[in-house]
Structures are given as C-alpha cells and as structure tokens.
C-alpha cells in the first residue's frame, strides 16, 4: 500500500490508449502500466517511488492527472 503518494487519473484519459501509453513512457519509476496493452493501471508497489518530476502531468488536459501528497494534508499537484 502506498502511504505517501496517490496518483489520480481521470477516467476518460485512462480509457485513451494513446494517453495511457504516453504515461507509461514518461514515468521514470514505472508507476503506470497497461497490462497486455489493455486498460491503464496504477502499479501500487511503485507509487511511493514517485519523484514528483511532474512529467505525467503534461499528458492529457490540465487536471486529468493529479499527484496527491498524502504527507502534506493531501496537497494536490496538477498542470495549470
């Protein structure tokens, strides 16, 4: 269970195969995956490795991906 970070991905974006592939590519710590090329999944084991590099926030429209810092009163990082 991740205890420091939560990643929220908007349902519409997660359903978009192209966006899902992009997320898998940009994340340096493999937090996103598309098992068998299917739907987007968040790899729970890796979520706490998040480096807050914000590369995933550039995918899709602003606000479709957000990073929540569970250790900072659930502060939210989003593209603005």
């Amino acid at each position: 269970m991740a205890i420091f970070i939560r990643i929220d991905v908007d349902g519409a974006l997660a359903a978009d195969a192209g966006a899902a592939r992009q997320l898998c590519e940009v994340c340096p710590v493999d937090i996103f995956s598309t098992p068998d090329g299917g739907a987007l999944e968040i790899v729970d084991d890796n979520v706490d490795e998040c480096t807050l590099c914000e590369l995933c926030l550039q995918v899709g429209k602003p606000g479709q991906v957000s990073i929540v810092k569970l250790y900072d009163d659930d502060a939210v990082l989003q593209r603005t």
Binding site: I3, F4, D48, E49, T51, L52
Partner: peptide, 15 residues
Amino acid sequence: TRVDLVARGVIKGVL
C-alpha cells in the same frame, strides 16, 4: 541524494 525519498524509505521500513 533526496531527503524526501530517504525519509519515505526509512519510515516505510519501520512501519
């Protein structure tokens, strides 16, 4: 080295 990542690691290890 990143302070926050080390902090996460040790706290997780203790928990």
